[in-house]
Amino acid sequence: MTKPKRYKRYSAEFKREALRRAAEEGMTDKGVCEELGISTRQFRRWHGEMAMLGQDAFRGNGRSRDQEVAALKRELAQVKKERDFLKEAAAYFAKLLK
């Protein structure tokens, strides 16, 4: 039994840049596809999605949001450590002043 073919996923920025390159003077869709190593069929699908949805096209697959959540969790953990350290320091100095 063979494994199903996995398709490469491209970022929204990559798709927008490919479409922008194709709109440049002297560039063709086929030329951009060959340059970037993507199929013309896939490129046409991106073009149609951009034409239909405009700036809302290429919402992505959620990875960037997951990365942002992970970064915010790391930042929150760091802020909690700093807060706890300051609480302990305040309690220590309060004891010294008594």
Score class of each variant (00 low, 15 high):
2 T>S: 15
3 K>D: 06
3 K>F: 08
3 K>P: 08
3 K>R: 07
4 P>G: 08
5 K>R: 06
5 K>M: 05
6 R>G: 14
7 Y>P: 12
8 K>W: 03
8 K>N: 07
9 R>G: 13
9 R>W: 10
10 Y>N: 07
10 Y>G: 01
10 Y>S: 05
12 A>N: 10
12 A>P: 14
15 K>P: 12
15 K>F: 00
16 R>I: 00
16 R>V: 06
17 E>M: 06
19 L>T: 04
20 R>G: 07
20 R>M: 11
21 R>V: 06
22 A>W: 02
22 A>S: 14
22 A>D: 13
23 A>M: 12
27 M>L: 11
27 M>F: 12
28 T>N: 15
29 D>K: 07
30 K>R: 14
31 G>L: 15
32 V>G: 04
32 V>D: 07
32 V>Q: 10
33 C>T: 10
33 C>L: 13
34 E>D: 09
34 E>T: 12
34 E>N: 15
34 E>S: 11
36 L>C: 05
36 L>T: 07
36 L>N: 00
36 L>Y: 01
37 G>A: 02
37 G>T: 01
38 I>V: 12
38 I>E: 04
38 I>Y: 00
39 S>N: 03
42 Q>M: 12
43 F>W: 02
43 F>M: 05
43 F>N: 05
43 F>G: 08
44 R>D: 10
45 R>W: 13
45 R>G: 06
47 H>E: 13
47 H>R: 11
47 H>C: 06
50 M>I: 15
52 M>D: 05
53 L>K: 15
54 G>K: 04
54 G>L: 03
55 Q>V: 01
56 D>W: 08
56 D>I: 02
56 D>E: 05
58 F>A: 03
58 F>T: 00
58 F>Y: 06
60 G>S: 12
61 N>D: 11
61 N>S: 15
61 N>H: 11
63 R>H: 10
63 R>C: 02
63 R>E: 02
65 R>G: 03
66 D>A: 14
67 Q>D: 13
68 E>T: 01
69 V>H: 05
70 A>I: 11
70 A>G: 13
70 A>M: 12
71 A>I: 03
71 A>G: 10
72 L>K: 08
73 K>G: 04
73 K>Y: 11
73 K>A: 15
73 K>W: 14
74 R>I: 06
75 E>Y: 03
75 E>F: 04
77 A>I: 13
77 A>P: 10
77 A>H: 07
77 A>Y: 14
78 Q>V: 02
78 Q>R: 07
79 V>C: 05
79 V>F: 00
79 V>Q: 02
80 K>E: 06
81 K>H: 09
81 K>W: 09
82 E>M: 09
83 R>T: 09
83 R>L: 13
83 R>D: 01
84 D>G: 07
84 D>I: 00
84 D>W: 12
84 D>S: 11
84 D>H: 04
85 F>D: 02
86 L>P: 09
86 L>N: 12
87 K>E: 09
87 K>D: 13
88 E>M: 00
89 A>W: 10
90 A>W: 01
90 A>I: 13
92 Y>V: 00
94 A>M: 09
95 K>A: 04
95 K>D: 10
98 K>L: 11
